[in-house]
Design a protein around this nucleic acid. Structure first.
Lengths: 138, 138
DNA sequence: CTGTGTGCAAACACTTTGCAGGTGT
DNA sequence: ACACCTGCAAAGTGTTTGCACACAG
C-alpha cells in the first residue's frame, strides 16, 4: 500500500502526492505502462507535464526502466529488487500480447548470444510478441 | 545501382523518383534508418509527408521492417531475401552502437527461448546495445 | 528557510489527413 | 485513361521548456 513511500525514501526522492500516485499504479499493475495508461489511471488527475517529469526522474534514479514497444512509443516498468540505482540488471524479456495489448516482464534471462568479434554489448532487450497465456486460455 | 527499380517491380509498386531515392538510401547504407536519416540523405529533398507515406507503403508491402529503438522512435531496415511479401522471417537481432548511434541487423538467429506455459509467440525482436566492432577498434 | 516539485501556458516536434494536381503504366 | 503518388496546408497528437508559486525536508 505505502510501499511507494518506502521506495521513494530508498531512492532518496521526496515523496509527493504525484509520485506516490504514479508509483502505486506501477505497483498495482504489473505490466509496462505508457503515459496514456498513467494519465487514465490516476485517481486525481495530474498535469501531463508532471507525469513526464516524474517518469524521467524515476528513470534517471533507476526506479523504473524503459520497455520497448513495437509502435515506437516507450513504456516503463518497475525495476526489480535486482537493480539498485548503480547496478542495473535489465536484460529483460518482455512479452507483448497482441490481443490484450499488455506488455509484461517475463522473468527469464536472455539466453547467451554469440556476437560477431569486436562487439561489446552492454544491454539486452528482447521483445516477444504473440498471445499471452491469459488470452490464449479463453 | 538500379536494384531499386527491380525491387519495386518485384513488389508491384510503381517506380517513382521518391521511392527510388529512398530505396537507394537503404541499399547504400546497411543499417536501420529513421525518418530524419532519410530526410537528410536524399539528394533532392522530398516532402516529409511523402517519406512517411513511402515508408508506410514499403512496410505494408514488406520491403522493409520495423527496427526497435530505445529512444522510442521507430527505424526501418530492408528485409532480406528471406522475406517475401507473405512469409516474413523477422526474428532479427539488432545491435545499436551507443557510440556511433547506428543500428544494424546482425545475421544471427534469436536463440530458442522457453516461454512460460500458454504463451504463443509470433515475433521476436532482440535489441542489443553496446559498442560495435567498428567503434571498438578505434 | 532552501531547494525541489508542480501547474499553467506556450513552444516545439512529430505524424496524420484532405484535397488538388501531376505521373506511371 | 485511370489509378495512384506527390506536395501543400492544416489539423491532430505527443513532448519539452520557462516561469511563478507551493510544498517537503
Amino acid at each position: 500500500m505505502n510501499g511507494s513511500l518506502q521506495l521513494l525514501k530508498d531512492f532518496r526522492l521526496r515523496s509527493t502526492p504525484g509520485r506516490v500516485s504514479i508509483l502505486n499504479i506501477f505497483l498495482k499493475r504489473n505490466h509496462a505502462l505508457g503515459h496514456a495508461d498513467i494519465e487514465k489511471n490516476t485517481p486525481a488527475q495530474f498535469d501531463r507535464v508532471t507525469i513526464y517529469r516524474t517518469l524521467k526522474t524515476f528513470l534517471d534514479k533507476g526506479l523504473i526502466h524503459k520497455v520497448l514497444d513495437d509502435e515506437g512509443g516507450l513504456k516503463y516498468a518497475l525495476c526489480t529488487e535486482a537493480c539498485s540505482s548503480t547496478h542495473h540488471h535489465h536484460d529483460h524479456v518482455h512479452f507483448k500480447c497482441s490481443r490484450c495489448g499488455q506488455t509484461s516482464c517475463l522473468s527469464i534471462d536472455v539466453p547467451a548470444i554469440k556476437l560477431p568479434k569486436g562487439y561489446k554489448p552492454t544491454e539486452f532487450n528482447l521483445l516477444i510478441q504473440g498471445i499471452c497465456a491469459h488470452c490464449a486460455a479463453r
